[in-house]
Design a protein around this nucleic acid. Structure first.
Lengths: 182, 182
DNA sequence: CTCATAACTGTCCGATCGGTCAGTTCTGAC
DNA sequence: GTCAGAACTGACCGATCGGACAGTTATGAG
């Protein structure tokens, strides 16, 4: 039966996000998504121009949210800049956990192939995390925080309730950056 | 021409490691490896029972080195435990950069499919990084360090010379764990 | 030299992938 | 009711993958 277009599209996106997060982009076939969403593979390609387009649509919200965060901290500096960036980054990472997990599976492809400019945004985030400093210690610490939050968010390990996890991630990140909260 | 068996095997492993680190395990075909190593795809399968066996042979040294590190810190506790573990982990991560990069591409597969018990080792590492503590702050910080060092090591970014990078990673990690060096 | 065997290869195979297309079924405006 | 168009599908296609196998070439001991 022909459901409303938007409903089927939403179901496809939901199935794709879940399967990508578990098996990765390459590890999930169009047939896998179709079976999970309860439609034919041909129906997928009726709603989306191709497999890549599904991925793009899934990652766009997270990309936009990150861009918004970077805009918001543009005018800040010093302690406020670091605090706002860390807090914002941790919040984003937790909100888009599944998107991060699927990125984690195919990072190399994403950073090259895409029409989303992920690498540029990641560089901006690191720059802000380092408090705009060009010195090696600050830049390394920024890389550390980037990776730490990224992976800690991607893990399935139930190390702590979400609220505790969030608070501890922020505290740890600020410590990593050698930043004493004001 | 038929070279010595060990020479061809070494060349295959070298090509495979380099290609896996760039394109991932799934993203590298047997033909890619064969072309790079200068032999036929059939020759690959003469020296190795299958694609998976090549991967296993590549990861075994890193796995063994990690196991050795965990053994070495077994008797330690408190400050010495954390310092030794952090230093050892950072050293390992830097020594096996390419192996980490290829793991990074296919983490989900590795943690399930393998005959190497990677997850168990990772849990032991986190436990040591947390100073054997079961409290949430310490365990989250341990996850942070695990992810931070992992990703910072995997990056191509020339943020600092290797010696500076290593020192700063260790200092940042100790800070993340709220550990003041003795 | 001979010759057993290790080293190597060209060729084929079945499976799976993303994607196409002609044709069918459903829906909603009139 | 009619019917145009949206929604959907089964069948098919070319490409690519990991792997199998019979056959060929090089090597080194006797």
């Amino acid at each position: 039966m022909a459901r409303s277009a938007s409903a089927m599209r939403g179901q496809i996106l939901e199935s794709a996000l879940r399967l990508f997060a578990v098996h990765g982009f390459r590890g999930t076939s169009l047939q896998d998504i179709a079976s999970d969403a309860g439609c034919s593979k041909a129906s997928l390609l009726y709603h989306f121009a191709g497999k890549e387009k599904i991925l793009t649509e899934l990652l766009t919200p997270a990309r936009d949210a990150l861009a918004t965060l970077l805009d918001r901290v543009t005018g800040l500096e010093g302690g406020r800049l670091v605090e706002e960036t860390v807090t914002g980054y941790v919040d984003l990472a937790l909100r888009f956990r599944r998107e991060i997990r699927l990125l984690f599976e195919d990072i190399a492809e994403m950073s090259c192939h895409q029409d989303l400019n992920v690498m540029e945004l990641a560089n901006g985030l690191r720059d802000a995390l380092a408090g705009r400093s060009r010195r090696a210690p600050a830049r390394v610490a920024a890389w550390m925080v980037l990776g730490a939050v990224f992976i800690t968010s991607a893990t399935d390990d139930e190390v702590a309730p979400d609220e505790v996890l969030r608070a501890e991630m922020i505290r740890s990140a600020l410590r990593t950056l050698d930043h004493t909260p004001s």
